[in-house]
Design a protein around this nucleic acid. Structure first.
Lengths: 261, 261
DNA sequence: TCGACCTCATTGACTAGACAATGCAGACGT
DNA sequence: ACGTCTGCATTGTCTAGTCAATGAGGTCGA
């Protein structure tokens, strides 16, 4: 049974299990052999078996549900389309564009909103052209789908811009924060999207209730007005096992290409 | 010294070290205390200390360089702009658009190219509208910067489309594979970009020489001709610690919005 | 019938060791 | 001065255990 090959024993055990998962023998949601049974199968101590399990957990292939056992993780990704923010208007007043899409798939969305005044983190300060001692208004949102956290969505606005507006109220803004910004004379016509891939910080992991082996994408949007002034930064944190980020491109015409920049 | 707080000891050790890293006390590249010294600091066995280290390694904060010690990982991300593929023409014949950008920053790029004929993986087959028994031409590339692997770039083409063309030759195509496709009557005017975030498979990890705790982004591009026929799928695997994916958007005019789709 | 309690299989946390592998630095020889 | 060799600090792998925590399922009593 012990498949030959170089390397430490725990790697071989992990390789065997991984192969059984990828071959479909252990399908999504299936229960893996118990640590105990693997110790006898491979004639090693439980510590070694646990090391093998750790490998698979860190790869995101397996989750441990103590004390029921280890299970093959099932991954279901929903498509997240940053571009749609500007393409479609929400159908349901009380939800934003992202959630809207999910309602039609029969899911039950909800969200929590909190508003804070604070100094911006370095990346946000740099993009809004502020110093780190300036104050920003932060709207922190956690979006849920069928009761489990789905992603977080923190928007940062310069205080002076949104002072006293609806944006500072910790309730959903039916028509969207962007519309409110436009009413304040800061309509956005241009945006820069940045995506950073990394493991979650412990805060993020607890806010999103994600387990070990799940990386996140940090999708940062900086919105600019027509005259190039940054007026909004959004940081979306998307757990990797629940999202597929999608966007589309059309080839610019020759004229557009030549006049670019 | 043992900072109080709930949870297992190894978490507290990890928390302490993480705090020292984030506060800047242990800057990028700094050496962490040895496992031995931590065992005495916290009065635990080395197994417990190792568990704490494992946490930080899995978070991508720390790398182990055996047997020199554990070090704070230094992350330097280069900006990757999927949209530029269609916006600018390469300046250097022998390099593609992505590498081109890096040359100007004084880096030394290189790449390896291999061409294979095989059946497509499921995701590619679905997007090209092929069965899993059809044959595709795969151009596999690994791009290096200053000698270390930077990302992989695997392009899939339907065999019948590129049969006998330059695309099947395992050498760099100066004018770009897209130009060759256009010459074959399959000019792409539309593309769908998808980004999936996950931990690397063991192959990917070895191909890209990435350590534990580094997630990857899989950037998949499907290119379509004017009449909606998919002619190319590219799978780029980007290690999270070396890439920042960026793209830009301009708000569509009212007319464009109303006539969309 | 239904809640309270108990048992048990299983994973989590930790101790106390042993030996292997490997860069690095310093000693040594030519 | 320069290559080689050797010792050593440090991490990697593994054994052999103990006790804790917890969800699930079954027992029992009202």
């Amino acid at each position: 049974m012990t498949s030959r090959g170089a390397g430490p024993i725990y790697q071989r055990i992990a390789d065997d299990l991984r192969a059984r998962i990828q071959s479909g023998e252990l399908g999504a949601g299936a229960k893996l052999p118990t640590e105990q049974s693997l110790t006898t199968d491979y004639s090693v101590t439980r510590a070694t078996v646990r090391q093998a399990m750790q490998v698979l957990v860190n790869e995101g292939l397996v989750v441990s549900e103590r004390p029921r056992g280890h299970f093959v993780r099932q991954i279901e990704r929903l498509t997240y389309r940053p571009q749609k923010e500007w393409r479609e208007r929400p159908l349901h007043r009380e939800l934003d564009q992202f959630m809207d899409e999910q309602v039609e798939l029969g899911r039950k969305p909800s969200q929590t909103i909190a508003v804070e005044l604070a100094t911006p983190p370095a990346d946000v300060a740099a993009r809004l052209g502020l110093g780190e001692t300036d104050t920003v208004v932060i709207r922190k949102r956690v979006r849920y789908l069928d009761g489990t956290p789905f992603n977080t969505n923190d928007s940062y606005f310069p205080l002076e811009l949104v002072q006293g507006s609806e944006i500072m109220h910790p309730a959903d803004i039916g028509r969207g924060a962007n519309v409110v910004l436009a009413e304040l004379g800061a309509e956005q016509t241009h945006a820069v999207d940045e995506i950073e891939v990394r493991m979650p910080t412990p805060d993020e992991a607890s806010r999103l209730e994600i387990g070990l082996g799940v990386p996140v994408a940090m999708h940062r949007v900086t919105g600019y007005t027509d005259d190039g002034r940054p007026v909004r930064v959004v940081r979306n944190v998307l757990p990797g096992d629940r999202h597929l980020i999608a966007f589309e491109r059309t080839r610019p015409t020759k004229h557009e290409r030549d006049t670019e920049r």
